[in-house]
C-alpha cells in the first residue's frame, strides 16, 4: 500500500463525513419537534386508547365515519383547482415580474405579497365582507360570475372548493412569487444576455432559459403545495366561523382529524386520518422528487 493510496483513503474517509458537523445543531430540533412526534402519531394510528395494537382498525373505523368520504372528496377537488392555479399563476407572474426588474416590479411584488401577511383570524373579517354580495367591492363579480345575491349563496356547497382555492391563492401566492423571484435571481445575468444577443425574445427566454433553471424550486413548491392543499384547514375554518356554521367544521379531512382529536378525544382516529394525509402527501412528494431530481446534487 503506497502512502498516496493511504492518503487518498484517509481523505476519502474524512470526506465521507463532509458536511455533517453543519447539520448537527439541526438534528435535535428535527428529532424533538419532527421525528418523535411523527413516530408517536404513527403509533397512535395503529393502537387503541389503551395502547393495544389494533392494526388497521382505526383506519377502517374512520373511513366508515359519515364525514370521511365527503371530506376527502372536497380536498381532492380543492387541491386540483388550487395546485393548477398556483403553479400556472405563480410561475407566470414571477416570470413577468422578472422580465424587467425595476421599481414597478418591486411595487407589484409587495402588493402580491401583502395578503399573505393576514393570518387566519385576520382574514375572517376581510373575507366575510368580500364574499357578501351586499357589501363587497367585488359584488359585481359575485353576482355575475358566482351567481350569488346573498352571502349564503356565495358559499353554497358547490362553490366552496373554488372559494377556498381563491382565498388560499390570495394569501399564499405572494409568498411563492417571492421565492420564485428569488430563484430567478440566482440565474447568472450573462446567460440571459447571451440569449438575448442570440435573438431570443422575452417569452423564449422565459420559457426556454429561465423556467428550466428554476425546476428544483418549482418542484419544491409543487410538493409543499400538494401537501398543504390536501391538508387544507385554515380557509374552511375561517369561512365556517364567518358563516356561523353554514360550512361544516369537518369540511376538509384535516378539519375532521382535528375534530376527532379534540371534540371526541379520539386521538387514535385523528392520527389515522393524519397518516392518510401523510401518505397522500408523501406519494406526491416521491413522485415529484424522482421526476425532478430534487435530491440530486450533481447538476
Amino acid at each position: 500500500m503506497t502512502s498516496e493510496y493511504a492518503e487518498a483513503t484517509r481523505r476519502r474517509g474524512l470526506r465521507n463525513l463532509q458536511g455533517m458537523p453543519f447539520v448537527l445543531p439541526y438534528l435535535p430540533f428535527l428529532v424533538v419537534f419532527g421525528i418523535a412526534p411523527t413516530v408517536y402519531a404513527l403509533e397512535l394510528a395503529f393502537t387503541n386508547v389503551d395502547g393495544g395494537w389494533v392494526a388497521f382498525h382505526n383506519f377502517v373505523r374512520t373511513y366508515d365515519d359519515f364525514r370521511f368520504v365527503p371530506a376527502f372528496k372536497h380536498v381532492l377537488v380543492y387541491t386540483s383547482v388550487w395546485l393548477g392555479t398556483l403553479v400556472v399563476f405563480v410561475v407566470g407572474l414571477a416570470l413577468l415580474l422578472h422580465g424587467r426588474a425595476n421599481r414597478v416590479s418591486a411595487g407589484f411584488r409587495f402588493l402580491f405579497y401583502i395578503p399573505g401577511a393576514l393570518a387566519g383570524a385576520a382574514s375572517v373579517l376581510v373575507w366575510l365582507f368580500m364574499l357578501d354580495p351586499s357589501v363587497s367591492p367585488g359584488s359585481f363579480l359575485l353576482h355575475h360570475v358566482v351567481g350569488a345575491s346573498i352571502f349564503a349563496q356565495s358559499i353554497a356547497p358547490g362553490n366552496l372548493p373554488f372559494i377556498f382555492a381563491m382565498i388560499a391563492f390570495w394569501t399564499g401566492a405572494g409568498g411563492w412569487i417571492v421565492v420564485m423571484y428569488g430563484a430567478l435571481n440566482t440565474i447568472p445575468p450573462d446567460l440571459e444576455e447571451a440569449a438575448r444577443i442570440d435573438g431570443a425574445g422575452p417569452i423564449t427566454i422565459a420559457l426556454r432559459l429561465k423556467l428550466p433553471l428554476i425546476r428544483k424550486w418549482i418542484a419544491y413548491m409543487v410538493i409543499l403545495s400538494f401537501a398543504t392543499g390536501t391538508q387544507l384547514f385554515v380557509e374552511p375554518e375561517i369561512v365556517q366561523h364567518a358563516s356561523f356554521g353554514l360550512v361544516p367544521d369537518t369540511w376538509s379531512a384535516n378539519q375532521l382529524a382535528y375534530q376527532m382529536a379534540f371534540r371526541y378525544g379520539d386521538f387514535n382516529g385523528a392520527a389515522a386520518i393524519a397518516v392518510d394525509l401523510l401518505v397522500i402527501g408523501l406519494a406526491g412528494a416521491v413522485l415529484i422528487v424522482t421526476r425532478s431530481g430534487l435530491f440530486r446534487t450533481d447538476d
Partner: peptide, 25 residues
C-alpha cells in the same frame, strides 16, 4: 455539499415531517 451517510435520510425525514398534519403532532 455533504456526502455523509444519512444525508438523504435527513432530507427525506425533513420532507416527511413537513408533510405530517399538525393536528396529529
Amino acid at each position: 455539499i455533504g456526502k455523509f451517510p444519512g444525508r438523504k435520510l435527513v432530507l427525506s425525514l425533513t420532507l416527511v415531517v413537513m408533510i405530517m398534519p399538525a393536528a396529529a403532532l
